[in-house]
């Protein structure tokens, strides 16, 4: 199986706070990897390492090696990296502009100006994000007028428009109702044919429904990492078992 990320001995500090401790993890291509664990254990932090969004935090220091496609992450320029590794945030964050402009935003920033090309990208991205049928008559309408679930799918479409290899999702359904959540989960299952997906979730069922691999975090450490099937059926570590059976956190 092909690795897309190779994380070796990563330690991360927010000022004095040691937020990630000796992380070792491989993330596989075209698979869905889930990060689970109690609040504050460092899931989002590790996720943000993968597209170097942590660079934006003033006092954040990363040690160790993260390789993306066999090349050190630090050697990529962040603009290229982030167009290859997209991110979907916890709560939907559409830009205050039209649906069309939201999705065309990334491609435009990377120099695509041709109206026809942009239109193609917008439509195919919306289709991939299973949103096209709902908004096709209203591409000029404000993105802020969409429902929460639609907004989140719009954000996924915005990500897809960049034609990334990897999509990082930080609790993408935590702000959504069960039906919208279900739609996103179906979408993830569809998207994993084309993309590598890393998803942070607090919902065990969601992890089992969408992911191939699962990493369990506690207090900045990875306690256990395995295929989702194995980790949930047959946890090797006592802490993992306690957590997934709900006896903890």
């Amino acid at each position: 199986m092909e690795k897309i990320f190779e994380i070796k001995n990563v330690n991360l500090y927010y000022g004095e706070k040691h937020a990630l401790k000796d992380i070792n993890l491989d993330i596989y291509k075209k698979k869905v990897t889930a990060f689970i664990g109690p609040s504050g254990c460092g899931k989002s932090t590790l996720l943000r390492c993968l597209d170097r969004m942590n660079d934006l935090i003033d006092n954040c220091k990363v040690e160790g090696s993260i390789k993306y496609n066999d090349k050190e992450l630090n050697q990529y320029d962040t603009l290229t990296l982030r167009s290859n590794v997209g991110m979907v945030f916890q709560s939907p964050n559409p830009f205050p502009m039209s649906i069309f402009d939201n999705i065309a935003y990334g491609p435009r920033c990377h120099g695509i100006k041709n109206r026809k090309a942009l239109e193609e990208i917008v439509i195919s991205s919306l289709k991939k994000a299973a949103l096209y049928d709902e908004v096709k008559d209203n591409l000029k309408g404000s993105a802020l007028a969409l429902s929460g679930g639609q907004q989140q799918r719009l954000c996924i479409a915005r990500c897809i428009a960049m034609k990334p290899d990897v999509i990082l999702m930080d609790e993408p359904t935590s702000a959504l109702d069960p039906i919208a959540t279900l739609k996103i989960e179906e979408l993830i299952n569809e998207l994993k044919k084309d993309f590598t997906i890393v998803i942070v979730t607090h919902n065990m069922q969601q992890a089992t429904r969408v992911s191939d691999y699962t990493a369990f975090f506690m207090l900045g450490e990875i306690i256990e990492y395995n295929t989702t099937n194995e980790l949930f059926k047959n946890p090797h570590n006592k802490k993992t078992e306690d957590y997934i059976t709900g006896r903890f956190g």
């Binding site: 597209d51 603009l79 990296l81 964050n93 830009f95 920033c109 915005r158 990500c159 960049m162």
Partner: peptide
């Protein structure tokens, strides 16, 4: 302006300058 919108732009690979002028 919500921080998440600014991070949203940066996470798409837009530069800080583009984010400043477009968002």
């Amino acid at each position: 302006i919500p921080k998440k919108i600014i991070s949203g732009s940066l996470a798409l690979g837009a530069s800080q300058t583009q984010t400043t002028f477009k968002i």
